[in-house]
Design a protein around this nucleic acid. Structure first.
Lengths: 111, 111
DNA sequence: CGGCATCCGATATGATACTG
DNA sequence: CAGTATCATATCGGATGCCG
């Protein structure tokens, strides 16, 4: 954005600006997820972008990253309290999207 | 996006993806606004982007465009019922942003 | 006043190959 | 498995000038 926030709304939107962030939020909202797991849950996302988004969201304190030093590398990502509260704030928007999905698909006609 | 919606949330986010769309939503939520008025309300936006966003939002049936054929050109933009319902769905997110503005500014440090 | 056309740079996203 | 590095592309946003 690179501009002072005019209201809380664009500050909030700034946190979910990435192409896949709300989906990541959704994927992690009820359980921790591993890197490869998230990749499978978001078909089409590249490893690079997944890494970038997770790093940004961690920097934003929305997600927690926990690395386990075992024989097989394992990293788990989960929502922080802050991230959970963001997810809660997004629920009405999600409900709105679900409710009007048909209409949205009509005007947008995504693949 | 060019990808089928996985849940209502990313469908909704798809509608507010533009850099200034939530601000436009906010600017119009309580009264119709003229083109030049919106430009003044969103310092920094270019005419081109303003035009593009308004056209997209009109195509998305979020805003209504009304052109008056008078001696002086006049066009008014206002939220449709659909746009108003979207604005309502965004309120918790706006409240979240307002509530955590300090923290967001901390991790993001915008201009 | 309310646009549209064009060009340009910045940023976001993606494909592929390689590594600890 | 969980990344990193590099290269390429796409989309977004901005500046400028012109028009009814």
């Amino acid at each position: 954005m690179s501009r002072p926030y005019v209201c809380g709304l664009d500050a909030a939107v700034d946190m979910i600006g990435g192409k896949w962030k709300v989906l990541l939020l959704w994927a992690m909202h009820d359980q921790p997820r591993r890197f490869g797991e998230l990749r499978r849950l978001l078909p089409g996302i590249s490893e690079k972008v997944l890494t970038q988004h997770l790093r940004e969201m961690a920097a934003d304190q929305i997600v927690r990253r926990e690395a386990f030093d075992e024989t097989v590398p394992r990293v788990e990502y989960s929502l922080s309290e802050f991230g959970l509260s963001l997810h809660e704030a997004l629920r009405p928007l999600g409900a709105w999207g679900t409710q009007h999905m048909d209409r949205i698909a009509e005007v947008r006609a995504p693949a």
